[in-house]
Structure formats: C-alpha cells, structure tokens
C-alpha cells in the first residue's frame, strides 16, 4: 500500500524553502538517528512525516512507563510489554508513513560497530543520552565526512549545534574530553516542551541540509531555557582547533579506538547500569530464561529477558548486554552480572 499521493507533501512543497525540488532531494535522503528516546522519537517522527527516503534508528533501551510523558512514539502497551524502543518506534513510524523505509536496530553504539550504521548515510541526528556515544559519532562523522546535528536537553533547557565536517568546529573542538556523568546527567528531570524545542532546532537544520539549502543553516550553537525564558545563539567558528584530534590536521579519531570506551556505563538519572559482554556473543534467551528462573521471576518477550530479583531487576538482550536496574553503582552492578553470567 502506498499513500504517497500527490497531496501528501503539498504543504511542504508550497513552503518557499523546500518546493518540489527540495522534496525530491529529501525523498532520496538517508538519515541515521542515534537513540530512540525523547529526542529520537521527536526527530524521527518529523523526518518520517516529511518524507525522507530512509530513516534508521539505533537504540539500546526498551520502553518504560516513565518514558511516556515525553517520548511521543510510544504507547502504554509498549511499556507494559517492555518493547525495545527501536522496535516500537519503527513500528509506529511505518504506520505513520509507509512510503518511507524505516529501520529500527536494537544495539548499543560502539566504536567497533558504528561504521555498520553510517554507511551511505547523508545526515546523522544525535538523540543520544551520553557524551561517550556523541564523541564516537563525532569521530566517524569527521572521518567519513557526514554532517551531524548535536542535540541534548534536560529540565527546561536544550542545546543544539550542526556540525559540518571540514567547515564547523566539531564537538571535540568544543569539549576536550568526555564530560563526566555528573555535570551533564539529567537528574533535573525534563519537560516535554524542552524535547520538542530541541528536536525542532535539529530537524529544521536537517530539512535545510537534505533539501539543498546549505546557506540557510544556522551556523551557531543555540541554547534555550523554556522556564526562565532565556535564549542564546553563539558563533563557535573561532573555536575550531587546528590541532583537534578529531577534525584537525593530524587527526587520529581517538574515540574510534576500541579501547576508548568502557564496558560499564551508568545510565544518567536512571538508577541503572549497563554492562557489555567482554566479547561478541549471541544469547539464546529461552535457554537463559530456564537457567535464571531459579533465582527470580524471569519474563521473556521476543527481544529481551527480564529477571526480577529481591532488590534489582536485570534486562538481558540477545547481544549479551545487561541493564542492571536498582543501582547506580558500577561495582555492585558488575558483581551481580558476574554472579549470573560468570
């Protein structure tokens, strides 16, 4: 079934900045969205409704009740069934616009694997929830010459910047190392409008780039606070560093080196720690459900296995990743992991 009739994009084509020509370019575009949480939902919905050619979402997490307040692609049923966000998002997006090719990938972004997702991509929208992943995105974007759009939000605050390799300062120029969890963690909570505003800045830039309106790009680091009514737009061109390890003359792409990232990651404001397996594995979830049900309540869906223990809950994915809920302490999470997975 194809509903991409003549009328579908008429309002967008009437818009002077896009037109029929811009719409054609958009229909050829392949967009990668890193993360399918709040920003990922909002960005993906706009890109799919606007008729991008292909939208790929990569996310490591699954839908929980606390997501529904702002992550606009998900339903109560997704939360009740603990559906991986990439799966639930792709399902919803396909029903919104069947003429767009939508791919949802349940995976963690790592230095080793990001190249699998960026091949042939025209633009990357950042909807990650941490800087470790953003620095990996920044390095691969610089290496392969793919523009990407940083976006992040917390509380009523949001920030975004478009990074065009070879032209703008990159994220590594602006931040000399990965910020520690504490200063960027979303312990302040978040309101939906901050998400929508950030995603609006990101997707407006995406539409400009993909429809061939390069000169319309904003060119500044924009930030705002919807509660205190502040807005700022700063020209960061002068912060581009000739000696930047990610985009400078002697670039080495340090964050694409496999040893640059940790096996354990504390998920911001979530009382959750993610542990990656030491090497690539493929878990048979049915087998593990049988094994682990001796220790607690084990529940399985096609995408993950959930094990509820006394004080903790573990979400186990086929790629061997485990989310340990109920602790923010990496050591405690690791010891639980080793108890069940050796």
């Amino acid at each position: 079934m194809n509903f991409a009739g003549e009328d579908r994009y008429s309002r967008q084509e009437r818009f002077y900045g896009i037109g029929a020509e811009g719409q054609k370019k958009l229909a050829q575009a392949k967009v990668l969205i890193i993360g399918a949480g709040a920003l990922g939902s909002a960005c993906a919905e706009t890109m799919v409704r606007s008729g991008a050619g292909k939208v790929t979402l990569v996310d490591r997490d699954y839908v929980e009740w606390s997501n529904l307040q702002r992550q606009n692609l998900f339903t109560e049923q997704d939360a009740a069934e603990r559906i991986p966000k990439a799966v639930a998002a792709a399902r919803r997006l396909r029903s919104v616009n069947s003429s767009v090719e939508v791919e949802g990938i349940v995976a963690d972004i790592t230095a080793e694997e990001i190249g699998l997702y960026t091949r042939g991509i025209d633009l990357i929208l950042d909807a990650a929830d941490n800087f470790e992943v953003r620095m990996i995105v920044n390095d691969i974007a610089s290496r392969d010459g793919i523009p990407w759009i940083y976006g992040a939000c917390t509380g009523s605050y949001g920030i975004s910047m478009t990074i065009v390799p070879g032209q703008s300062a990159c994220l590594h120029c602006l931040l000399d190392s990965v910020p520690a969890g504490g200063d960027t963690c979303d312990t302040a909570g978040i309101i939906g409008p901050a998400v929508q505003m950030t995603a609006a800045y990101q997707t407006a830039e995406a539409l400009k780039w993909l429809s061939g309106n390069v000169s319309a790009l904003r060119g500044t680091l924009v930030s705002f606070d919807l509660w205190t009514n502040r807005h700022s737009s700063v020209d960061t061109a002068k912060l581009k560093r000739a000696d930047c390890p990610s985009c400078g003359a002697k670039r080495t792409y340090p964050y694409l080196s496999p040893d640059s990232h940790s096996r354990t990651a504390v998920l911001c404001g979530r009382d959750t720690v993610q542990i990656r397996p030491p090497s690539q594995v493929r878990l048979d979830l049915e087998e593990w459900e049988r094994r682990l049900s001796a220790y607690g309540r084990a529940e399985r869906n096609p995408y993950m296995l959930s094990l509820t223990l006394d004080r903790h809950r573990m979400a186990i994915f086929p790629d061997g990743r485990v989310l340990v809920h109920g602790t923010g302490d990496p050591a405690e999470a690791r010891s639980l992991y080793h108890r069940y997975f050796g």
Binding site: A152, C153, Y157, L175, P179, C185, S232, C268
Partner: peptide, 10 residues
Amino acid sequence: IELVHFVGGG
C-alpha cells in the same frame, strides 16, 4: 558574559 553549558540528555 554569556555562559552556555553542555548537557547530555536526549
């Protein structure tokens, strides 16, 4: 002085 701080949430 304009201070713009980075955040990580998404």
